[in-house]
């Protein structure tokens, strides 16, 4: 099973590298949103909470623009039937999940670097900040993978994706915003326990998605 999943991930990466437009657009979207915030602010000072809110809103919309793509592409190219002939639904889910996690972590690296650089933010606890970004992005990627599959089957694009993702992503966004603001201003370092919450939440979502994915992918 492992080699089959790796095979599928390799296939996805090859396709994305050959036709770079979609991934490029996701990266460009993330970069431009960050830059536009910085340009619009024009050096005005933000409080740590405002920094945290803007940072996670940028990450949220970057996820909304890029993470449904992997499933929508399979539907558009009419590949989904061939995929289900060769792979079991669980294998498809796990490979797409890993692809999305890698993609979103790399998007978040760009957003974080640009944000810290252009808005001159220096977190008091850099380790907490990095751990928050990694676990928050992990949670966002794991939730949006199953919802991306749902959206690709509905065939109505990214606006539906945002609508159905928002209520389910709210606990992640709240926790991540709180942790980020703490790591920037340095108050209440005991909040680091909430990282466990982010990881636990993604664990629950991943296990339920793993169980229910076949009902989305195959007709029953």
């Amino acid at each position: 099973m492992n080699s089959r999943i790796l095979n599928n991930i390799k296939k996805d990466f090859l396709i994305e590298i050959r036709n770079r437009s979609a991934v490029n657009i996701s990266f460009a979207f993330a970069g431009i949103t960050t830059l536009s915030v910085s340009l619009a602010a024009g050096g005005a000072p933000f409080t740590p909470v405002v920094h945290a809110i803007i940072f996670w809103i940028i990450l949220f919309f970057s996820a909304m623009s890029g993470l449904a793509h992997i499933f929508i592409r399979e539907e558009e190219e009419k590949n989904s039937l061939f995929l289900s002939l060769y792979y079991s639904p669980e294998e498809i889910y796990l490979s797409k999940l890993i692809f999305n996690i890698i993609l979103f972590l790399s998007i978040s690296v760009i957003v974080t670097a640009l944000y810290l650089f252009f808005l001159q933010v220096f977190p008091v606890y850099p380790l907490l900040f990095i751990l928050t970004v990694i676990s928050g992005c992990f949670a966002i990627a794991s939730i949006t993978t199953i919802l991306g599959a749902i959206v690709s089957k509905a065939g109505s694009g990214s606006s539906l994706f945002t609508v159905i993702s928002f209520p389910i992503l709210l606990p992640v966004l709240w926790t991540a915003i709180r942790l980020t603001s703490v790591s920037i201003d340095g108050s209440g370092v005991q909040e680091y326990r909430n990282i466990v919450f982010l990881l636990a939440f993604s664990g629950v979502i991943i296990s339920v998605s793993y169980l229910t994915f076949k009902f989305i992918w195959t007709e029953f």
């Binding site: 199953i146 089957k153 209520p167 989305i216």
Partner: peptide, 18 residues
């Protein structure tokens, strides 16, 4: 979509565990 019932049920279940 022929699979409407399955897909909307999965969404409601994910919302419920949240």
């Amino acid at each position: 979509n022929v699979n409407r019932m399955g897909i909307s049920s999965v969404y409601l279940i994910i919302a419920m565990i949240t």
